[in-house]
Design a protein around this nucleic acid. Structure first.
Lengths: 140, 140
DNA sequence: CAGTATCCACTTCGATACTG
DNA sequence: CAGTATCGAAGTGGATACTG
């Protein structure tokens, strides 16, 4: 599975340790293009708790529209992160569940959540400080 | 620092292990609102290699416009992830460097990059398979 | 060099209405 | 229940020109 954070070793000086990747973006943008939208991670986090039906997801994720729930699940399905099972009953019943790849993504997302919890306060404080010190700054 | 991915333990069944967070999004969206844009992670990854000047960043990140480089660095600065040092010389010289918080973020981002590298192929394959199996699907 | 300012194209998303 | 279709508002980023 290799979740070793080798590479971008935090360091102070201005030397060039030549990060994990030669010269490009390490491919991080690929992931963020998938997770960066408004709802994807919320769906993944919810599905990490277990299999869910369409309506269950919608109820578990307040504010998501039918349209966005559909496009989000469809994208995750298409990318092989989510498995979609249709029970051809009446009324129809569709179940969504994370695949193995999807579950590994959920673990990574948990790492993000950890970071968020650990540093949210510091960031909020920094922002308040900055705003106080730069009252009439453009483009906030 | 606590980079323990407790919580969303990957598991197969449909039971409810009650994730890391009671009911909400675990706050992951907070991070992604900051990282999800087109350039932020690229700037962070570049700064993880060492202190950079404005032009150096621009050259290191092909395609970024002056506008976006400015708003991206400004945001990171405002959030306390990046330190901005102005040398009042002529011509002016401005240096950007990650703060401690910024460096911890770089570590987390490296985790994302790891995941991306480990699963990019699987996702691309899944997508091709899906596209082949669903030729005339709407909204791709 | 290191920005700011302005305008515009494109994307993303929400609301609403309808369907098998 | 589980979607699809359509439209419009808002956000986001790129190009260009100008400045201390």
């Amino acid at each position: 599975m290799s979740v070793a954070h080798t590479g971008v070793t935090p360091q102070v000086g201005g030397a060039e340790p030549v990060g994990p990747c030669g010269e490009d973006d390490c491919g991080v943008r690929d992931v963020l293009d998938r997770l960066g939208d408004k709802w994807t991670v919320l769906v993944v986090v919810e599905l990490a708790k277990g299999t869910r039906r369409y309506r269950e997801l919608q109820r578990a994720i307040p504010g998501i529209s039918q349209r966005m729930l559909t496009v989000t699940t469809r994208r995750l399905w298409r990318d092989g992160l989510v498995e979609r099972t249709v029970h051809p009953t009446i009324p129809p019943q569709v179940e969504y569940a994370l695949t193995d790849v999807g579950r590994s993504l959920a673990v990574t997302i948990a790492g993000l959540a950890d970071w968020s919890r650990d540093h949210k306060d510091a960031m909020d404080a920094a922002r308040r400080r900055w705003d106080a010190e730069h009252p009439d700054e453009t483009g906030r």
